[in-house]
Design a protein around this nucleic acid. Structure first.
Lengths: 206, 206
DNA sequence: ATTATCTATAGATCTATAGATAATGC
DNA sequence: ATTATCTATAGATCTATAGATAATGC
């Protein structure tokens, strides 16, 4: 908060546009006219171009913002854990629960498919870091960490698709089952994989 | 070929539009003007509306066509195999190789994310059928076939993303490693999982 | 004679900006 | 005095169709 009031107002306008854009992305309305987006953000049409060069530019910013925000939450909620296999499992289980708890964020990710996995930031980067740590600690024995990341990232996205398509399904049970399957695949003994993926979780509302 | 020449010409025009649309989807150009698509298909603007109500209608048809075509290829190339674990692995390995061999088809799938997994047709439906058969035969022991499908479908899509992002990477090696990991996860013993995922494959060019 | 296609374009829609207004800094 | 925002709109772009042309059926 070192900025002055003018810059804070500017930041608020930008944030309103980003938040509105995330809603449009979540609803798959990627072709919505800029005017509609600015109206939804309660911002004048002309202000749009003070902040973004084009609609694509805005959507890009909206996606990166969503990724950074959720990644930060995950780091906060796994900060005190020593066992890297536990960190990985807990991050996966929290991300699985995110699909229903934060449906807009979830749909932003799903609608952007895998674009985001290659960006150095965000969830993929964090998951890779956790997998590497677990390999170094001898907790995982999988052959190639990058391919392990591919399977984990693909699974968490496809799981989101399933949870939105079948609202009746128990999201925690499905998520934890997949976490257990992945841990086994990564080299954790079956009984331990089951135990780790059933541990109590911190609250996502933090 | 029971149709007359008029209907065959009509079908050709429609097919040209579908093929052009698949190229546009593959290149992420979902907002391209209809005129550009018809020009790329070498078809008059007005003919578009003889076949499709809107651009979305065309893109939907293009996606379903791509899925049906490749699914048919997979069925043909796994037709003679008795062991359902082998069928599953071979389908996965062929699909992984499809990303580089048929990059446009691959990108059509990636750009549409997971929309297609819920449609009853196409790849997801076939994979589910194979998993169920392997469970019934006692070859797989995974807890929930639907969640196994989630992991397999997510993995094959994320793998495609990786193979396009890293053109240097050996696609066959990456695909087969993931196939092996998935087989283990599904309950196949480690040594057998490795052997099944290294067997010779039929040629995708058929 | 019938059907599909093509060319040309009216009207609808959207983008990007000019110029006016409002808020803040100093 | 400066900066951000707002309203209003010119001009660009796109969609959907009308009417003309070409291909096929009978």
């Amino acid at each position: 908060m070192t900025e002055n009031r003018l810059e804070r107002r500017k930041a608020r306008t930008r944030a309103a546009l980003v938040r509105a854009a995330q809603e449009f992305i979540a609803n798959g309305r990627l072709n919505a006219p800029i005017l509609e987006i600015t109206q939804s953000a309660d911002v004048g049409m002309g202000s749009f171009y003070n902040h973004f060069e084009s609609k694509e530019d805005l959507f890009q910013a909206a996606l990166e913002n969503a990724l950074d925000t959720f990644g930060q939450v995950l780091d906060d909620l796994t900060g005190g854990i020593d066992d890297p296999a536990h960190v990985f499992a807990q991050s996966f289980r929290l991300t699985g629960r995110m699909h229903r708890r934060l449906p807009e964020l979830s749909k932003v990710l799903l609608h952007n498919g895998f674009e985001f996995t290659k960006s150095g930031r965000g969830l993929a980067h964090r998951a890779r870091r956790d997998i590497d740590a677990a390999l170094a600690a001898g907790r995982f024995t999988v052959a190639d960490p990058e391919l392990a990341l591919v399977i984990a990232a693909g699974s968490v996205l496809a799981l989101g698709q399933l949870l939105h398509a079948e609202p009746e399904r128990d999201d925690a049970a499905a998520t934890d089952q997949i976490a257990e399957d992945l841990l086994r695949m990564l080299g954790v003994p079956a009984d331990e994989a089951r135990e780790i993926s059933r541990r109590p979780l911190p609250d996502l509302d933090a």
